[in-house]
Design a protein around this nucleic acid. Structure first.
Ligand SMILES: [Mn+2]
Ligand SMILES: [Mn+2]
Ligand SMILES: [Zn+2]
Ligand SMILES: [Zn+2]
Lengths: 125, 125
DNA sequence: CTCTTATTGATATAGAATATCAATAAGGAA
DNA sequence: TTCCTTATTGATATTCTATATCAATAAGAG
């Protein structure tokens, strides 16, 4: 099935880029409703998924959190402020070598890992 | 509010210990129903939360997954097999020094971090 | 044993994300 | 441009996980 370009898809992509890099689907929906009130919530959820599958945005999964979407697609980590709830980028080199440490011992075929940080952001201190 | 000992609480704790270390609330519920059919689902969810707050079991949060409960309370990592979906313990030393790397640059008060691995387990290869 | 109240369990509720499906519109072909 | 196929939309229903509500029950201190 060939993908088609729609006004909705473009609005959604632009909203993700505008909304501080880590918006939820609901936040994207609310943002777009301002300029395009007729958009459906299902369309937003659907396209956010499609856009992340196509690599145009990055889907961020947090434990016990609703999914978020990042316009920065390169590999990087995130930290959640436990006070204000905001998600920030972590400016840190990628941790390497983690894969080998467990492959040896148990015979896992290792695919990926994810690190999630928690703390208090400078603004909330 | 002083905590009381109940049959249900004990059944739930024992079920967690019996069920391969990483059971979901639904799995614990199904397991207990065999011997104690009258137990309520809310009671299972409630006590799993209480037990983890009291440090008797450990609550494991996976992104986009239902919560799981581990009778091993010491700090360790987990890997999820992307084929069978099972969660395994990762036999690896704790990664240290991650906290300092980000504190310096952005002024975060660092509280915790979580690493989640994904791969294919030996059985599924 | 008695009494206070923590706990139970049936049920309702909340929240996130996907499924359904008739109506619409993107975009290739003529 | 016009026609046609079908991907996409948007209203709505559904699924799934977890928590909230609340009358009835029972733990356990006195
Ligand atoms: Mn980011
Ligand atoms: Mn474990
Ligand atoms: Zn903050
Ligand atoms: Zn497996």
């Amino acid at each position: 099935m060939k993908r088609r370009n729609t006004i909705q898809k473009e609005l959604i992509l632009n909203a993700v880029k505008r909304l501080h890099s880590h918006a939820t689907a609901e936040e994207v929906y609310a943002e777009i409703q301002k300029e395009y009130p007729s958009i459906g919530k299902a369309t937003v959820y659907r396209n956010l998924k499609l856009l992340s599958e196509d690599g145009q945005i990055k889907r961020i999964e947090f434990p016990c959190e609703s999914e978020r979407f990042d316009d920065t697609c390169s590999d990087h980590y995130h930290i959640k402020c436990e006070k204000c709830g905001k998600i920030f980028d972590v400016d840190m080199d990628l941790v390497s070598g983690l894969t080998d440490k467990i492959k040896d011992k148990h015979g896992f075929t290792f695919n990926s890992y994810q690190i999630v940080f928690k703390g208090i952001c400078p603004n909330c201190q």
